[in-house]
Design a protein around this nucleic acid. Sequence first.
DNA 1: ATAAACCTTAGGGTTGGGTCTAAGGTCAAC
DNA 2: GTTGACCTTAGACCCAACCCTAAGGTTTAT
Lengths: 134, 134
Amino acid sequence: MYRIGQLAKQYQINADTLRYYEKNGLLVPSSRSDSGYRFYSDDDAKQLRFILRAKSVGFSLIEIQELLNIDNNRAQWACKDVKGMVEAKADVIQTKINELIQFRDSLQGLAKACCGGPESAEHCSILDALEESA
Amino acid sequence: MYRIGQLAKQYQINADTLRYYEKNGLLVPSSRSDSGYRFYSDDDAKQLRFILRAKSVGFSLIEIQELLNIDNNRAQWACKDVKGMVEAKADVIQTKINELIQFRDSLQGLAKACCGGPESAEHCSILDALEESA
DNA sequence: ATAAACCTTAGGGTTGGGTCTAAGGTCAAC
DNA sequence: GTTGACCTTAGACCCAACCCTAAGGTTTAT
């Protein structure tokens, strides 16, 4: 069992963030002390790791809630529902990947055309490219 | 010379957005009418295109301000400064892409291992795995 | 027994990138 | 000479995802 400050420190986040996650139903500590202190179990920590990982790759908290929701209501879902949900999420991620690849490529295209030398940017191709009309 | 509404309409943005850009020093109209109406010149429109284009490839308004600073003062910058900025941005995007690919793959791995049948998800391999991998 | 370090709550503030509203001024047309 | 489209300003509000503060209660070490 961890108190809020311990868990926060361990995952390098703010204790307020954990309270915020609780308020939004993402991570409710599995117990409280008599005095009201939050107690987080190892399972809670596991769920926190899932949240942080999903967040780090760009899922919104609402999307993370959906993912967690499947798990918290197992009996209400059929295997195919779960599989469909996961595949849908994978598709969403793929779309994000495609967008980012496009973005990366356009940046790399700009960089590639630039001499990158120490001379003045008077005739910099990157700046010229950004000035071109769309 | 364009009034704010004309310029906004031409570039399919909100007039408020142009006022917002002005407030943030991104695009100050080159003149005003006696009554205070903003007048945007062709050069202003050119700068707006720069802003919109940079935004569309993922630069934040603050980053765009930096780029404009360079652009408006090209002589004081070297090509490598500009190229460095763009490459750094591309690196950040690449990191994000890598994370997303990893996450997509793990979701696809989960879906692949699932029977996907109509029975209850009580013993669904995806949910079990989700708890492990999280 | 007291101080330090921790926890509780409610509720307000921040950032980024806008969007909207209110209350009023301007300008062209009929 | 008034209608309607446009413009002005200041300031409120939006969202996500937190962060901070105040006022107080708890735990632990000395």
